[in-house]
Simulated assay, not measured.
Amino acid sequence: MATNQEEVSLLGVTGSPFVCRVQIALKLKDIEYKFLEENLGNKSELLLKYNPVHKKVPVFVHNEKPIAESLVIVEYIDETWNQNPILPSDPYQRALARFWSKFIDDKVVSAAWKAVFTVDEKEREKNSEESWEALQFLENEIKDKKFLGGEEIGLVDIAAVFIAFWIPIFQEVGGLELFTSDKFPKLYKWSQELINHSVVKEVLPPRDPLFAYFKARYESLSASK
């Protein structure tokens, strides 16, 4: 647990997969923190002060020291609090975990988003294919492990919460088949393990309001065609 001398707060918005990553890490480590809900339409002075470069959430603040970018924050949390390690101790395995986490951000997150929330049909198709290709790499990588990190949740699983929870909402909103149990049986099984894990389950945002939010966004996009 974070001691009373330590001030830990998180600037974020409910429903963000990137904020959720940090919340999972904090929950795994059993660290108490203050959650400061941001309004991204009217960003607080605190957010602009703590993250002047990107002006985005999440921002993690530990004893008045701000850190931005979700994967950087998760690594910082892991290095600062020793209990329940998130990254492997072996340098090679740790490097691999960083590689796959970055792969998820570079190859899966933006492609899956654009596959649904892009007006141009060709662009949608291109991004759907890119999503399938990227997910296939992860399908091959998981092999017979329970989690992408092994038997316990690790950095890659935390990064991939976007795949397990957000992509199924996106595909339902857009009527697409991006991530199904037929196409990716091992990864789909992993996704069910992850979203039903006691720690993850506790910090995932409620699905219905999130679905309604993305549905409205999708419909306004379709109307603008």
Results as ranks from 00 to 15, higher is better:
Ile163Ser: 12
Asp144Ala: 07
Lys126Gln: 14
Thr3His: 08
Val200Arg: 05
Asn196Lys: 15
Asn140Arg: 09
Val61Met: 06
Phe184Trp: 10
Tyr92Lys: 07
Lys122Asn: 15
Ser89Pro: 14
Leu11Arg: 07
Lys43Tyr: 01
Asn39Ala: 01
Ala223Asn: 14
Val61Ser: 07
Gln23Tyr: 02
Lys49Leu: 11
Asp106Pro: 02
Asn82Val: 01
Gly175Pro: 10
Phe184Ile: 13
Ile67Thr: 14
Lys186Tyr: 08
Gly149Asp: 12
Leu221Trp: 10
Leu135Glu: 04
Val203Phe: 08
Pro168Gly: 12
Gly12Lys: 11
Ala216Tyr: 02
Val119Ala: 15
Ala216Cys: 03
Gly174Gln: 09
Ile77Glu: 01
Ala112Tyr: 05
Ser16Glu: 05
Leu135His: 02
Asn42Arg: 14
Pro209Phe: 00
Val59Asn: 05
Lys189Arg: 10
Ser222Val: 15
Pro88Phe: 09
Pro168Cys: 13
Ser89Leu: 13
Phe162His: 08
Phe137Thr: 09
Val22Cys: 03
Ala223Pro: 08
Pro209Cys: 03
Glu193Ser: 09
Glu172Arg: 13
Glu123Phe: 13
Ile31Leu: 15
Trp132Gly: 04
Glu69Asp: 14
Arg94Ser: 04
Cys20Ser: 11
Leu10Gly: 03
Asp90Glu: 12
Ser181Asp: 13
Ala112Arg: 02
Arg21Glu: 04
Ala2Gln: 07
Asp144Cys: 07
Pro91Lys: 03
Ser220Ala: 15
Gly150Val: 08
Gly12Phe: 11
